[in-house]
Simulated assay, not measured.
Amino acid sequence: MAKHRIYTTSFASVYPHYVAKAEKKGRAKTDVDRIIRWLTGYRQEELEAQLERQTDFETFFAEAPRLNPSRTLIKGVICGIRVEDIQEPTMQEIRYLDKLIDELAKGKAMEKILRKGEHNA
């Protein structure tokens, strides 16, 4: 089975859409970056380097320094699919990020987006 097109899409080509979606709802680029850093473990300089290198989504998540263990607390529907039910690991990471950006754009508090105060079961 062929890989989904998003895997070979440059993360840098989608990143401005994440930022625009957040800014349209009164949030900031710094909020988007904070979410990405929380999810992936990249430091800001590392995130910027990935954007500059035009890294594809598959590589972006494969090279993530430390995927946040609390990301499994992310639940809900994105693109008509429950993120917690996605079987393919890379697609699930991409959809986790999509869900977090959606929550940001919907005005959810950053502490809730970053799953502060929730515990893994």
Rank of each mutant, 00 (worst) to 15 (best):
N120T: 08
V14R: 13
M110Q: 09
Y42I: 05
R82N: 07
K75N: 05
I35F: 08
Y42L: 07
K108E: 10
K99C: 05
C79Q: 13
A64D: 06
I78A: 07
F57D: 01
V32K: 09
E111P: 01
K21Y: 07
H4K: 10
Y15C: 14
K29L: 15
M110E: 07
Q50K: 15
T8V: 00
L39Q: 15
F57Y: 15
Y7F: 15
L73F: 02
M1A: 10
E93I: 00
Q44K: 15
R5F: 00
V19Q: 10
R27W: 09
E88H: 13
Y15P: 14
C79P: 00
I6H: 05
D85Q: 11
L67V: 12
Q92R: 15
G76T: 08
A20L: 13
Y7C: 05
A12I: 01
Y15S: 11
V14K: 11
A64Y: 02
A12N: 12
T9E: 12
Q54H: 07
R66L: 10
Y18H: 14
V32L: 11
P69C: 03
A2L: 04
T40C: 12
T59E: 10
E45Q: 07
R43I: 02
K25F: 06
A62I: 03
R27M: 14
H119V: 13
G107C: 04
L73P: 06
G107W: 07
I101K: 03
Q50S: 05
G26R: 09
Y18W: 14
K116T: 10
A20D: 15
I81N: 12
R71D: 01
E93L: 11
I86F: 07
G76W: 04
E111R: 03
T72I: 11
H17M: 13
R37F: 03
S13P: 04
R27L: 11
A28T: 15
I113V: 09
A28K: 12
P69M: 02
G107Y: 03
S13G: 09
F60Y: 10
E58D: 09
F61I: 01
E48A: 14
I74Q: 04
N68Q: 10
Y96S: 08
K24L: 13
P65Q: 00
N68I: 06
Q54V: 01
I81F: 10
K25S: 15
S70H: 06
Q92C: 08
L47K: 07
R5V: 01
R82A: 08
Y42C: 11
L51W: 02
Y7I: 03
